[in-house]
């Protein structure tokens, strides 16, 4: 319990730090007033708009006002959408969560069998080809992979949808469970290409990780003992080897989420995915400080919560870890 409280306090510091950095960074980049007046605005109008946006006050005052409102859950109105920034962020969040979770699932579900298969067939062409793909997967930029998939799987073979998004979490949150689940197959279908584009790097890395820890475990005494006892190979792999081999993968899940989240900006652009990455990118370009702040705080919260959960789970699985 003390652990959780300590972590929450630390998180608070982290969030304040994150907002301060984004605030200063965006402020330093110049006066955004010009983005929010018309082409023929007069000097008087510009001054008025600047005051209306609050950019005429001293920096520390702006920041304190911002923090004061933040505590009440108010990030202010988006400068470009003219509506609450938090709303805009929360609307874009589900799509990104869908994409990231799906990619994370791929990064585990696809990577582990590949890694195990490579380890069990060590030195054979199976191992060779899996590792070659895995190596290549770590050297292809995701936007490139995305565009290639659109060209071949989407356009040439007409196998997968080229771009777009069918919501699942959004209707779920709104309480429309029936709609959510009736849309689930479609939602997954639209997730495949962007999901792979986001996850390919991680799949490759995890497959290699599983392979090497598998090889390590397979060489250990208890596995040899199990084999000697005549337990079937499948049982050895699943019951003994795999259980230990995937620990390094679990360790990485917390970090993995943040890593995958970093990859979504580009992939959301390529696949027209209406997520938070594109929102932030546009907001940064528009100097829409309320939206950037809201998005950054929400992401940090998601990230911190996830790490906390991973730590707790990890402590459960591996008794050696003390919190």
């Amino acid at each position: 319990m003390t652990f959780i409280i300590r972590r929450l306090l630390q998180s608070l510091v982290v969030i304040i730090g994150v907002t301060l950095i984004t605030f200063l960074a965006l402020q330093m980049s110049g006066d955004p007033t010009y983005l929010y007046v018309s082409e023929r605005a007069t000097e008087e109008e510009i001054i008025q708009t600047r005051a209306a946006l609050g950019f005429d006050r001293p920096l520390h005052e702006q920041y304190l006002t911002f923090i004061g409102k933040l505590v009440q859950g108010d990030f202010g109105n988006s400068l470009s959408y003219k509506r609450p920034a938090l709303g805009a962020v929360l609307e874009a969040l589900p799509a990104t969560i869908e994409l990231t979770l799906f990619a994370m699932m791929l990064a585990i579900v696809v990577a582990i069998p590949l890694g195990v298969a490579a380890a069990l067939n060590r030195g054979t062409p199976v191992d060779g080809s899996i590792m070659t793909v895995a190596m290549a997967g770590q050297s292809i930029p995701s936007f490139w992979l995305g565009i290639m998939m659109i060209m071949f799987l989407g356009l040439q073979m007409r196998f997968l949808p080229i771009s777009g998004h069918v919501p699942f979490i959004m209707p779920l949150v709104q309480g429309d469970v029936v709609r959510a689940f009736s849309q689930l197959p479609q939602a997954l279908y639209y997730l495949i290409m962007p999901g792979f584009a986001v996850a390919f790097y991680s799949i490759s890395r995890n497959a290699r990780l599983v392979r090497s820890s598998m090889l390590e475990v397979l060489g250990q005494d208890y596995v040899r003992t199990a084999r000697a006892k005549g337990i079937s190979e499948t049982a050895v792999v699943i019951r003994h080897a795999l259980r230990n081999a995937w620990l390094p993968v679990v360790t990485m899940i917390g970090l993995e989420f943040g890593f995958l989240l970093g990859g979504v900006v580009v992939v959301e652009m390529v696949f027209s995915w209406p997520g938070i990455g594109r929102l932030i990118f546009n907001a940064i370009n528009q100097r829409d400080i309320p939206v950037v702040q809201a998005a950054v705080v929400i992401l940090a919260l998601v990230f911190i919560t996830l790490n906390l959960i991973v730590d707790l789970i990890y402590a459960k699985i591996d008794p050696r870890v003390k919190l």
Partner: peptide, 11 residues
């Protein structure tokens, strides 16, 4: 590490 670095880089 509390949020994706690429966003910081973009900013």
């Amino acid at each position: 590490l509390a949020f994706p670095f690429i966003l910081l880089a973009i900013m």
